[in-house]
Computed example of a mutant assay.
Amino acid sequence: MNLDALSSRLIERFQHGMPLCAAPYQAMADALDCSESELLACLQGLEQSGALSRIGPVFEHRRAGASTLVALAVPAERLEQVAAQINLYPEVNHNYSREHRYNLWFVLTGPDRPHLDRLLGQIHTATGLTPLDLPMYAAYRIDLGFSLNFAVGDVP
């Protein structure tokens, strides 16, 4: 996908944080030397093209409650149905499939570990599948940002 100049600048500048203020989109527009309406149109275009999936905070889970990585071994013919079922839980994010016996992976986040344990039980009951619970014990790198300013062959 080829990005226009505003889209590239927007991603480079704000993939690691938005302004925390009453008018964050205006503050972003000011930083990018464009109007708020241009910025919002840019964000809408990125979303419609599939280049942007969400705008929002990423919380450090130990400060915001509890979270765990979960994997399910879903029969191929049930994958779409089970993924849709899992997506009904508001505590679920980052739900995706992988090529592996454990082919559906998602993150559960909640107020505390007992809440997550209840959700894991509900998911087991609802799907008939046993969740593989993989809680994080230590974070080594959480930066999910990617530079758009590197040449082919460079290591970002």
Rank of each mutant, 00 (worst) to 15 (best):
D143C: 07
C21D: 14
L69H: 11
A22K: 14
G56L: 10
M136S: 15
R101Y: 04
R62M: 10
V70F: 04
G145H: 04
C42N: 05
A71Y: 05
F146K: 10
V82K: 01
N149Y: 08
F146H: 13
E80V: 10
A84H: 09
E36C: 02
P90N: 12
A83P: 00
A66T: 05
E80R: 13
L39T: 01
G65Y: 08
L79N: 01
A27I: 08
N93V: 04
L52Q: 05
W105G: 00
E60K: 13
E60I: 09
L120M: 10
F59L: 15
D143E: 11
E77M: 08
L148K: 02
E38H: 03
R62F: 10
F146M: 10
S49A: 15
H115Q: 11
Q81G: 02
T68Q: 04
V58L: 14
L144T: 12
G145I: 02
N149M: 04
E47H: 14
I142W: 07
N149C: 07
M18R: 11
H94M: 09
Y89D: 12
L116I: 12
D117P: 01
L52T: 09
L20F: 11
G45M: 03
M28V: 14
R113M: 08
G45A: 14
F146R: 14
L134Y: 03
T130Q: 15
P19D: 03
A126L: 13
R141C: 08
F106E: 00
M18N: 06
H61V: 09
A64T: 07
E77K: 06
Q48N: 12
I55S: 05
L39S: 00
A138K: 07
A51L: 11
V74T: 01
A138Q: 13
E77A: 15
H100C: 04
Q44L: 13
L134N: 10
A126Q: 15
R54D: 11
F106K: 00
R118L: 14
L116M: 07
H61S: 13
D117M: 13
T125E: 15
I86S: 05
E91M: 09
Q122K: 14
A51P: 01
V82R: 00
G121H: 09
P131Q: 05
A138G: 00
M136L: 08
L119T: 03
E91Y: 03
P90W: 07
L104M: 01
L144F: 08
Y137F: 06
T125M: 15
S67D: 13
G110D: 15
T68C: 13
E80K: 08
R113W: 10
M18W: 11
T125S: 15
L69Y: 03
L52W: 02
E38D: 11
